[in-house]
Design a protein around this nucleic acid. Sequence first.
DNA 1: TATTGTTATACTCTATAACTATA
DNA 2: TATAGTTATAGAGTATAACAATA
Lengths: 159, 159
Amino acid sequence: MDKEERLHGSTPSEHPQALRLWLRMLTCTQLIETRVRAGLGAKFDTTLPRFDLMAQLERVPDGLKMNELSRRMMVTGGNVTGITDQLAAEDLVERVAVPGDRRAFRVKLTDRGRTLFVAMAQQHEAWIVDAFAALSGKELESLHRLLGKVKEHSKNTSN
Amino acid sequence: MDKEERLHGSTPSEHPQALRLWLRMLTCTQLIETRVRAGLGAKFDTTLPRFDLMAQLERVPDGLKMNELSRRMMVTGGNVTGITDQLAAEDLVERVAVPGDRRAFRVKLTDRGRTLFVAMAQQHEAWIVDAFAALSGKELESLHRLLGKVKEHSKNTSN
DNA sequence: TATTGTTATACTCTATAACTATA
DNA sequence: TATAGTTATAGAGTATAACAATA
């Protein structure tokens, strides 16, 4: 009996499908996320938010302003400052002045940061592909479609 | 364009199905979990780990030992002590001596804790049912089955 | 006045490890 | 020695709010 089966009582039929589904989804997400976190730490000595910030900067050669990063990463500004400070200290990103607004600047990946990110993203992708290796292409597509409905409903319901 | 679509570049076809699926799954989980956390805080002034601990104790009238709670919640012992202390201070759980082993005791829901938990669980269930309201019964079943494969594979792969 | 970004602070959640009491 | 539980500490990760500089 694992955590999912125990939570809220052990007899699945006592609870609506949605609740059982949610517990299973949480378990899956946590299993995968825990492994990705551990892998990023062990192989690249980095964290998920740091990886996320670098991922935001990839494919934006001109970089992003702090407030854009904050909005996209869905965290508050102070945190972005902290993560950016760390990455800048390791020469993975740099702050570039914005002409015409001396308050702002753009954060960009350095060459070193870009090279490292490519390696990390490749490894990250391999972990994820492995995590879903039990599903066929058709099943991946089906799962993606179903979660799309959940996501849209969730975004429309509140926010 | 939302976070899922932006992460790792904006053209979905550049990335394997599995990666796109993972980003969508993460988004769904975070949207729902954020709401549940906020709801538990606003309506019951509690947190997810506290709710989880109480959920473990429900349907176990004799309670659980600390190390059993630790194992089931998948967190280390010190944390269980902390959460138990909080809940005990609010008279929601109690520590009961175990005859024959003076080192151990069982943690049980108090009557007050049980009453509160029933109310919380009911509200929690409503939030979850709502989160998946966009799916039909058949779709819920399908999603559950697909995630079952992912979960089993993940549990067998490592651990 | 409003905006950009930084700093200071605090809180939740988690892990590790040293410790006490008992087995 | 081993086990049950506690305590102390540290470190992610997050939020809020006061602040300085600039618009």
